[in-house]
Design a binder for these strands. Structure first.
Lengths: 219, 219
DNA sequence: AGGTGTATGTCGCAT
DNA sequence: ATGCGACGTACACCT
């Protein structure tokens, strides 16, 4: 990883046009070739960047980074304060826990948490506009589509609505109801869901994980 | 901006749990207090981060960063290769051109580009599920809702549909038609829009900007 | 390569 | 603060 501290100005031409007036910044070049220009503030997002794959052309006092899509990043250096290179090697990568996929596995094992008597038919049940998280069957044998979110927002309601629209065309399924399951359901999502005849259920991840300990083979 | 190159492991507890095994990485601390852990690859996104505002507690061989929301980032240093500080000062900030907001201003000034005789009633017309980009009136005095996108995709059609559903409950507006305006409209969006009785219009940004030069006071 | 869905999304604007 | 939509969203996954 190469780190350059320099007073520079930057221009980007691509999906939009952007200009960055002269100031002191960090220019980071990673081993995969991606370039990022960071100011000393403003969260982790760089002011400008260019992802790999790209081509870095290093001229006198200026760099031009171009990629196959025709986007271009130009950095004009006015004064370089530091320019260092650091060997880092490959990164073992991040291990995550508590994302939507985990919630999906947990609920697939225990759909009755969402509604008494619910039984799983299939996880990632395919439709022609994308897979439904869970397709279940209720006590009366009617199909129930479950959309799972970490946070239940308006998008989740739209998504579930679209799936239901599709599933209801499949006569084999008969009546299909919809459940939006999330750790937290926002009020607007609740309102929209109710207006559409959908049910929202809030589930507790830690509690589900506790239940899971009965069946330690899940993961 | 402080830059630390070190072999370290990282744990994050917050919106999810995440663990990062030991490896050599860059730890960046910006003037606003935000902390980011970068590997030597993987675009500009750090492996782990903590945005401002937060509190950095520096102990022997480990940092703990906590924020008011109760999220926590722990960095355990095993070997420090470099630790430097750089004064950068405030950044003048990025100047962008060509985003949706510009398109919205341009079309608000010249709605007749979308349809003969169209007149603006209000930009960002509020509904209880969010603001409509433009509410216009057509030649016959009927209301027309305009949703503006840089790229017209299925989401834009959904959004416009939702707004129309709301607007049509307002009897004062009478019949309300919908137009999706974008620089490019994807085929799926066209199909869905047509099926919903919506009109899609492709607009040329540069051409609009040319028209705009008649009234240079806009920006 | 293109479509769809997730994200510790982040960011900005308006209420 | 919260709600809402845009973003050069990036990114993984699947066809």
């Amino acid at each position: 990883m190469r780190l350059v501290i320099a007073r520079c100005s930057v221009d980007y031409e691509g999906r939009l046009s952007a200009h960055l007036p002269s100031a002191t910044r960090l220019v980071m070049v990673k081993a995969d070739g991606c370039v990022a220009v960071h100011a000393d503030g403003g969260a982790y997002k760089p002011l400008n960047w260019m992802n790999a794959p790209n081509f870095l052309e290093e001229a006198e006092g200026s760099w031009t980074v171009s990629n196959p899509k025709g986007e271009r990043l130009m950095i004009t250096f006015e004064e370089i304060f530091s320019d260092s290179d650091h060997e880092m090697g490959a990164d073992p990568g991040l291990e995550k826990d508590g994302v939507e996929r985990h919630l999906q596995f947990l609920l697939a094992e225990r759909p009755w948490v969402l509604e008494e008597g619910l039984v799983l038919i299939r996880r990632e049940y395919p439709t022609d506009i994308g897979p439904v998280d869970l397709l279940c069957s209720d006590q009366d044998g009617n199909a129930v589509a479950v959309e799972i979110k970490r946070r239940g927002e308006i998008d989740g309601v739209e998504q579930l609505s679209r799936y239901l629209e599709r599933l209801r065309r499949d006569e084999r399924l008969g009546e299909v109801r919809g459940i939006l399951a999330a750790q937290v359901v926002k009020p607007q999502a609740k309102v929209l869901a109710e207006a559409r005849g959908l049910v929202t259920v809030e589930v507790d991840y830690d509690e589900l994980r506790g239940l899971e300990s009965d069946r330690p083979t899940l993961f």
